[in-house]
């Protein structure tokens, strides 16, 4: 193909390029800038090369936070995706209950994230919180401010409460878009409910499930507000996930260089894993 000589069209994309530059590239480059330099304030910088990256990648603290992050994301995905699917399957398809169910489902999504954290913080308090008091009254020793196990359970239950609705709504929309003819054909073919799920609903939901998994993966991997309001990363470091650790390093210790290097590593992990998820789920899929 011959290249056209007229390059004026570039001027038309200039506004978009400058906008993207200001809201994405410039901030990102600032982080890159910090990640390769040492600073002591007063805008005095010293070149540090890849020193911060080496430090982050070798630090036990980063490894521990990453491991906690992977465990958290893995657990909530393993709960929210199947649970969301089951709830979506159980929801009514028509009638007055549809809107009731949809509103109920949408409610947790409409609550500001720090409010969610605060709600659960109070709800789970062992002395005055309904949940915390109830669990203890049932004979379980439960105190999320002191026991790492309790803290983990609370963070996970809170995330499931907050975000399963998203999976439900996506799956419900996917289910509603399956034409009736499929169900009629399944009836005619004598398919049992399990076969209907396995061969009609699940294949038709593949795309929405991919989206649901991707969204939940990315959001949970970057979880911050709810967890920090609920546990502040504790007790100890037991619920200090990557984002919480990052904030501690950057704003708590003012180690801007290592924090910037960690941000970039963090970003690359999210990007790579999202890409892997997407590629795995979309293989054999004709568009």
């Amino acid at each position: 193909m011959r290249k056209t000589a007229n390059q004026k069209a570039w001027f038309f994309v200039l506004p978009v390029v400058s906008l993207v530059a200001f809201n994405a590239i410039v901030p990102l480059m600032t982080v890159v800038n910090y990640s390769v330099q040492e600073t002591f304030g007063d805008n005095v910088f010293f070149w540090a090369g890849v020193q911060w990256f080496e430090q982050v990648l070798r630090s036990d603290r980063f490894h521990a936070a990453l491991l906690r992050q992977l465990m958290f994301t893995g657990t909530i995905l393993a709960i929210e995706i199947p649970l969301g699917l089951v709830i979506a399957l159980a929801m009514p398809r028509k009638g007055p209950w549809v809107s009731v169910c949809l509103v109920l489902m949408a409610l947790p999504l409409l609550i500001p994230w720090n409010v969610v954290g605060a709600m659960w913080n109070i709800l789970a308090l062992p002395d005055i919180g309904l949940l915390g008091y109830g669990v203890n009254a049932l004979g379980f020793e439960y105190n999320y401010t002191r026991q790492p196990g309790s803290a983990w359970a609370t963070v996970i239950v809170m995330d499931v409460w907050h975000w399963t609705s998203l999976v439900v709504l996506l799956c419900y929309a996917g289910l509603m878009s399956i034409p009736d003819a499929y169900y009629q054909a399944a009836k005619v073919d004598g398919a049992r409910p399990w076969a209907v799920f396995r061969y009609i609903q699940l294949p038709k939901l593949k795309r929405v499930l991919t989206i649901a998994i991707l969204l939940r993966f990315m959001d949970s991997f970057m979880v911050y507000t709810e967890a920090v309001v609920l546990t502040g990363g504790g007790p100890g470091n037991s619920t200090t996930f990557l984002s919480i650790d990052l904030v501690k390093i950057a704003l708590g210790q003012f180690d801007l260089g290592p924090a910037a290097a960690m941000s970039i590593v963090y970003f690359l992990i999210v990007l790579t894993m999202s890409w892997i998820f997407y590629t795995l789920m979309m293989r054999n899929e004709e568009i």
Partner: peptide, 30 residues
């Protein structure tokens, strides 16, 4: 189910993830 009928719909209904063979075998296996 009890009437034991077969129906071909306006828009093709196939079980996407199954092979042609398994699609044809589906009502029998059920």
């Amino acid at each position: 189910e009890l009437r034991n009928i077969a129906q071909v719909f306006q828009f093709p209904v196939v079980y996407d993830t199954l092979t042609v063979y398994d699609n044809l075998a589906f009502p029998l296996r059920n």
